[in-house]
Amino acid sequence: MANTPGAKKAVRKIERRTAVNRNRRSRVRTYLRRFDEAVTAGDAAVAATAFTEAQSELMRAVSKGVVHKNTGARKVSRLAAQLKKLTLA
């Protein structure tokens, strides 16, 4: 358990930051789910808009430090591949 005032403050800061990051991560997952649902439904137009939103949200999470840069790039790349596959079919 934290004993010093500085350590107690650090614990409070970590709790706040964890809550914010949890919300951001949840938001990213929501947009990814929407894209996945659009792809599953086979609707290319809806999937294209969902892709744009999901990409934007993922890169925002990267800039905020919630997701690593390479992880965000990999996920966006895979989403783009899914979208391309859907539009060609």
Rank of each mutant, 00 (worst) to 15 (best):
T4I: 12
T52F: 03
Q55L: 02
D36P: 08
V62L: 01
D43F: 03
V46C: 07
A61G: 03
S63L: 13
R24S: 06
R33K: 14
A48F: 10
N23D: 06
A7L: 05
V20E: 12
T49H: 06
A80W: 04
N3L: 15
R24K: 12
R60Y: 03
K8M: 10
F35T: 04
N23P: 02
T52M: 05
V39L: 13
A89V: 08
G42S: 07
M59T: 03
K85Q: 15
R33Q: 08
A38S: 09
V28K: 01
E57Y: 03
A54I: 02
T18H: 14
F51A: 01
R60P: 01
Q55G: 03
S77W: 06
K84W: 05
S26G: 05
A73L: 10
Q82L: 06
R78H: 11
T18I: 15
S56Y: 08
T18N: 12
T40A: 14
A89T: 11
E37A: 15
N3K: 12
T52I: 12
K75N: 12
F35A: 05
S26R: 15
G42A: 06
N23S: 11
A45G: 12
R25L: 15
A41C: 05
A2V: 12
R27L: 06
A10H: 06
L86D: 02
